[in-house]
C-alpha cells in the first residue's frame, strides 16, 4: 500500500479505520445505534456535511423534533483521531514499515479478542500523553460540531475507550 503522505491514508483505508474506531466507541456510548451503523456510516462517508448538518426542513406535518443519531458525530470525531494515530505510527515506524501503518493502527484498537498478527508487528499501546492528546482532539472536534460539553466529553471518552492505552 502506497502512502502518499505520512499523515494521510487513502480515503478508503482511512474510512475503514474510522468506521472501526467509531463502532468501538459506539459500543460504549450508544450501542443501540449499532444496528444501523453500516447504513449510517455509508451515508456519512458519501457526504459528511449533509448528515451532520442537514438542511433544516420545517416539517409541516412532523412532530417538530430535531433528534440526530450519535453515529455521525462519532464518525466525525474518529476521523481526526485516526489521522493523528496514523501520523504518530508513521513517524514511529521506519520507512520500510509504512505500508503496514493501517494494520499497526488497527492494533491500537481495543478488541474483545487479542490480535493475531506476528508479535514483531504489534506496536506499543498509546502512552498516557498520547491518550490525552487523542481525547483532547476528540473533545475539541466534538465541540466544533456543536455538541454540548457533556456529550462532547462522552464522545471523547468513548473514542479513547476504543483504544489500547498503556
Amino acid at each position: 500500500m502506497a502512502i502518499d503522505d505520512v499523515e494521510r491514508l487513502p480515503s478508503k483505508a482511512e474510512n475503514e479505520l474510522v468506521a472501526e474506531l467509531a463502532r468501538l466507541a459506539l459500543e460504549e456510548a450508544a450501542p443501540e445505534e449499532l444496528v444501523l451503523f453500516p447504513e449510517t456510516a455509508e451515508e456519512y462517508f458519501q457526504d459528511p456535511q449533509a448528515v451532520l448538518d442537514p438542511e433544516r426542513r420545517d416539517e409541516a406535518l412532523g412532530f417538530g423534533l430535531d433528534i440526530a443519531m450519535l453515529t455521525p458525530y462519532v464518525l466525525a470525531v474518529a476521523t481526526p483521531v485516526i489521522r493523528f494515530l496514523v501520523s504518530t505510527v508513521a513517524e514511529a515506524v521506519g520507512e520500510e514499515a509504512k505500508p503496514l501503518v493501517v494494520r499497526i493502527v488497527r492494533r491500537l484498537f481495543r478488541r474483545s479478542e487479542p490480535p493475531s498478527e506476528a508479535a514483531g508487528e504489534a506496536p506499543a499501546p498509546l502512552s498516557s500523553d498520547q491518550a490525552r492528546q487523542v481525547r483532547e482532539l476528540a473533545y475539541q472536534r466534538a465541540k466544533g460540531l456543536g455538541l454540548d460539553e457533556d456529550r462532547a466529553a462522552l464522545l471523547a471518552d468513548a473514542v479513547v475507550g476504543g483504544l489500547i492505552v498503556g
Binding site: 417538530g64 423534533l65 430535531d66 455521525p72
Partner: peptide
C-alpha cells in the same frame, strides 16, 4: 419506515 440519517423528525403519511 426509516429515512436517511439526515431525517431528524417523525411524521405520518
Amino acid at each position: 419506515m426509516l429515512g436517511t440519517a439526515a431525517q431528524r423528525d417523525g411524521f405520518s403519511y
